[in-house]
Simulated assay, not measured.
Amino acid sequence: MKKIWLLIVFVCALSACSDSQRSNKNPYIPNYSVNLSVDMNLPAYSNLKFVSNGVIVPNFGAKGIIIFNAGNSYNAFDAACPNQEINSCAAMTIDGIYAVCSCDKVQYSLFTGLGSKEYPLKQYKVEVVGSVIHVYN
């Protein structure tokens, strides 16, 4: 029984079992402190009330923060291209349910943060209270 328990702990350590879904260790995007609140009752953020809509909030993180309504939850990602040097690209753009890198045109799912390259989008924690979305790390 001890061997099985040790095996589970070892496998969990290798697969990064934790409260976060993926590692945010990305050599291209620095770890900026993020503490952002947006009110969906304001016109600039009212589209976030509807599933599959997103907005980019500038001046937070490396290149801004993308907030996306994924249905049962909200996702928040850095708008910096995750597989490019920080100064080589403009902020990503939103194209439907994808964030698109301005340098290489790679699309990243705003539901999962995954694209076709090595690093996924840098994700932040999200908490929703009433109509206010709080994004932080």
Rank of each mutant, 00 (worst) to 15 (best):
V132L: 10
K49F: 05
K25L: 12
V106W: 03
I65G: 00
V129S: 15
V38W: 00
K117D: 07
S18Q: 13
A90R: 14
I56N: 00
Y136T: 04
Y28C: 05
E118M: 14
D39H: 08
G113R: 00
V11W: 11
C101Y: 01
E118A: 14
N53I: 02
D78S: 07
L6E: 07
D95E: 13
C17G: 02
A76E: 00
I86K: 09
A13E: 08
V11M: 13
Q84F: 09
A99L: 04
N72G: 15
T112I: 00
I8F: 14
A99F: 06
M1K: 15
A70D: 10
N31S: 12
A16I: 12
P30H: 13
H134G: 05
N47I: 14
N83Y: 03
F111I: 11
V132S: 12
N35L: 10
S109M: 03
K49H: 09
D104L: 08
L48C: 03
K2P: 05
N75Y: 01
I94M: 03
I4W: 12
D78R: 07
V129W: 07
S116F: 08
V132M: 11
P120C: 05
V135Q: 02
N53H: 14
N41R: 06
K122H: 12
V126N: 03
F60M: 09
N47W: 09
N83C: 06
V106L: 08
N41F: 05
L42K: 15
A16N: 15
S131I: 04
F68N: 00
V132T: 15
A80I: 05
G113H: 00
C89Y: 05
N75H: 07
Q84M: 15
P58W: 05
I133M: 07
G61M: 01
S131E: 10
G61R: 00
K3P: 06
N26R: 02
S88T: 11
P27G: 07
W5V: 14
F60N: 14
F10C: 13
I94S: 02
L6Q: 08
V129K: 15
S102K: 11
V9M: 15
S23Q: 10
F10E: 12
Y124Q: 05
K105G: 09
F68V: 03
N26E: 04
L36V: 10
N69F: 04
P30G: 11
V106T: 15
I56K: 01
Y28I: 02
I94C: 05
G54M: 01
C81S: 12
V34S: 01
V11Q: 11
I86R: 11
V126G: 04
D39I: 06
K25C: 07
N26T: 04
D39T: 09
I8N: 07
K122I: 06
E85I: 10
K122W: 06
F68G: 00
Q123T: 11
L48S: 01
G64Q: 02
C101M: 08
L121F: 04
I97E: 09
K25F: 12
N47R: 15
G64E: 03
C103A: 10
D78A: 10
P120N: 09
V55C: 06
N53C: 06
A90L: 13
L110F: 01
R22D: 11
K25P: 03
S20W: 14
V135F: 02
S131P: 07
V55L: 06
V100T: 08
R22T: 10
S46Y: 09
Y98P: 01
S102C: 08
